[in-house]
Design a protein around this nucleic acid. Structure first.
Length: 581
RNA sequence: GGUCCCGUAGCUCAGCUGGAUAGAGCAGCAGCCUUCUAAGCUGUUGGUCGCAGGUUCGAGUCCUGCCGGGAUCGCCA
């Protein structure tokens, strides 16, 4: 149950009763939300102000009429006109009891919605080059994409998590050559790694495996054959490495899409370019050199261009390099056409800050290949600065000089990594302080939230100690006398719980999963706060050995809090421990 | 030079896609441990929402122009 959605519908109905001819798009702009100041009541709506102008009426006049409509509503104890035309409602206590009951009934499903109407969404994230282990720069996008995917799935979308493997470029040739060096090293040769090669030690096991499989026979085989073998082996190994890294954070993609499969004669890129030409989206022309860049490097030549400017990009984009091969973008157009042909009308790409210049052409490509039938949202994750006690932090165990994802997870754990990365908007750069993340105080939001969850369990243990005869099974809690929940402190907590469904829905629509992390933190704060009230006022404690029925009702409240924290942490991919070590 | 992102309390950040007197945490100050976990809670100080215009009933939020920080700019992926 979502009280805000419930009253949005009632407000809409009341308006239509008063003014039957209101257009639907106008009604859609009406918001029922918690007022910023709790003193204004439980719910507030801007309905009168939205509707007044088209009706040619004064907002307060419309609001007054609406207020009259709600005087008969038994769920409303107070309704009043405020400010320029707001209508504030105070709800009757039974509404909050219904919220608690619906949480008990829906459990893990509380907050789930059909918002997405089962529509297919493709979320492409990570897509790190398969040339080595994942480093911290990838981690934020990985966590963001995975959490967004969970959020969208919870909100009724049919989500596909996808990884685009950039396995076609010259970097893969370099990777193969680097691997071949490691192979020779495994055979006992002293090697020197030239600059431009991948120096990381993670290629050593691949070289060793090649030796185990082929002995020294690769040294004498013809070059193309060897390259093909080494490439295949090292790509598989790198992908395996990346999958293991991701798995450490609980991330699993549904589809790994290989760029290589798009290339080749008669392949998807050829087909896509042919199609683009037929649609008149490609032409031969010249580009202006970018201003502010050294013009000496610029080779003015006629090239094959995609009409990206027709779809909102700043310049038309080249599809063929000077050596005759396709540009990365040409493959990407084909890839996104492939996504569209697979049935995706909603696409989300999660990219790092270094790709922000790529956003417009990606959106242009998506519009073009779908003939404007698909939408593309690109979420940019800004840089993460690693710190330890405020000092820049570098650590290089596995690869060259970059801190890897595995290093981070090893250091602070998957839960903390995920939560901290989500406890910030994706488009703001952030500092990630190892020392803080490992701290077990309320300064550490991960700990703070998990502690609230553990505290809920602790209360149940206390109840069983003080009232051994009390049945606290799920069935007993569902049958508890919720009507005993009446104090303002308790009802404040229920109000936070009631905001969960609209928080999820708003976060899903905005593609902003960080709101889930903030909500869960707010809920934990409200719970800790209520718990502490039991210290000043013994009558507010959850467990009251004189009154088992009241205890049971309050345990139902505790269980509702526990459940909603679990639901939030589940979306975030963070565990909810029953007790903290 | 073009494009995109950011600029909110001393610090780190929210601000629910235009709503009411701009919020939280830390730091500072003042309190709370014979207590369901003090691993926590309560109160309080602190603001020209970078600057200047504009749009309207109403702007931290939208538009324009500046200032400052970051990313990026055909033949990397």
């Amino acid at each position: 149950m979502d009280v805000f959605a419930l009253f949005a519908a009632r407000v809409s109905n009341a308006l239509q009763t008063l003014y039957p001819d209101l257009p639907a798009d106008l009604l859609a702009r009406i918001v029922v939300e918690p007022p910023r100041d709790a003193a204004h009541g439980d719910l507030s709506t801007n309905a009168a102000m939205i509707v007044a102008k088209p009706l040619g009426k004064n907002p307060r006049e419309v609001a007054t009429a609406l207020v009259e409509q709600f005087k008969a509503d038994a769920d409303v104890t107070e309704v009043e006109l405020a400010g320029p035309g707001f209508i504030n409602f105070r709800l009757a206590t039974p509404i909050w009891h219904q919220v608690l009951r619906s949480i008990a009934t829906q459990g893990a499903e509380y907050g789930r919605s059909a918002l997405g109407k089962g529509e297919a969404v493709n979320i492409e994230f990570v897509s790190a080059n398969p040339t080595g282990p994942m480093h911290v720069g990838h981690t934020r996008g990985a966590v963001f994409g995975d959490t967004l995917a969970s959020l969208m799935a919870f909100s009724g979308y049919d989500v596909t998590r996808e990884y685009y493997i950039n396995d076609a470029g010259s970097q893969i040739d370099t990777l193969a050559r680097s691997t071949f060096l490691r192979y020779r090293e495994a055979l006992g040769e002293a090697i020197e790694i030239p600059s431009g090669f991948y120096p990381g030690e993670y290629l050593m096991p691949v070289g060793q495996a090649l030796k185990d499989e082929f002995g020294d026979s690769l040294l004498t085989k013809a070059e193309p054959e060897v390259t093909a073998i080494v490439k295949g082996r090292v790509l598989a190994a790198m992908l395996d490495l990346i999958k293991k890294d991701l798995a450490q954070l609980g991330i699993h993609h549904d589809v790994f899409f290989s760029e290589r499969t798009l290339h080749g004669e008669g392949g998807a890129i050829d087909a896509t370019l042919k199609w683009l030409r037929e649609e008149g989206m490609v032409y031969e022309g010249r580009l202006e050199p970018p201003k502010g860049k050294a013009p000496e490097e610029w080779e003015d030549r006629e090239q094959t261009l995609f009409r990206a400017t027709d779809y909102g990009d700043d310049i038309d984009r080249p599809l063929v390099k000077s050596d005759g091969t396709y540009t990365y973008f040409a493959a990407d157009i084909a890839y996104h056409r492939n996504k569209f042909l697979r049935g995706f009308k909603h696409m989300i790409n999660v990219l790092g800050a270094d790709h922000s210049g790529y956003v417009k052409r990606l959106q242009a490509a998506t519009k073009a290949v779908s003939l404007n039938a698909a939408d593309m949202d690109v979420r940019i994750c800004q840089l993460v600065r690693l710190l330890k006690n405020g000092e820049p932090f570098k650590m290089s165990k596995r690869s060259g000089d970059l801190v890897t994802l595995a290093d981070v997870v090893e250091e602070v754990g998957a839960d903390a990594t995920r939560f901290m990365l989500m406890y910030r908007r994706n488009d703001a750069s952030m500092d990630f302080d190892f020392a803080l993340v490992k701290e077990q105080t309320k300064d550490n939001p991960v700990f703070y939230v998990q502690y609230a969850h553990a505290r809920a369990y602790s209360i149940f243990k206390t109840a069983q100690r003080d009232l051994p005869a009390l049945d606290v099974s799920h069935a007993a809690l569902a049958a508890a006398e919720i009507e005993r929940i009446v104090t303002p402190a308790e009802l404040d907590l229920v109000r936070v719980l009631a905001a969960w469904p609209r928080t999820v829905a708003a976060a899903a629509v905005a593609h902003e999963p960080h709101r889930i992390a903030f909500y869960v933190h707010d809920l934990a704060a409200a719970f800790h706060s209520f718990w502490a009230k039991g210290k000043d006022d013994v009558s507010l404690r959850f467990v009251n050995s004189e009154d088992p029925k009241l205890t049971l009702a309050r345990l139902a409240l505790v269980d509702a809090v526990r459940q909603v924290i679990v639901n939030g942490l589940t979306i975030l991919g963070v565990s909810a421990p029953e007790e903290l070590s």
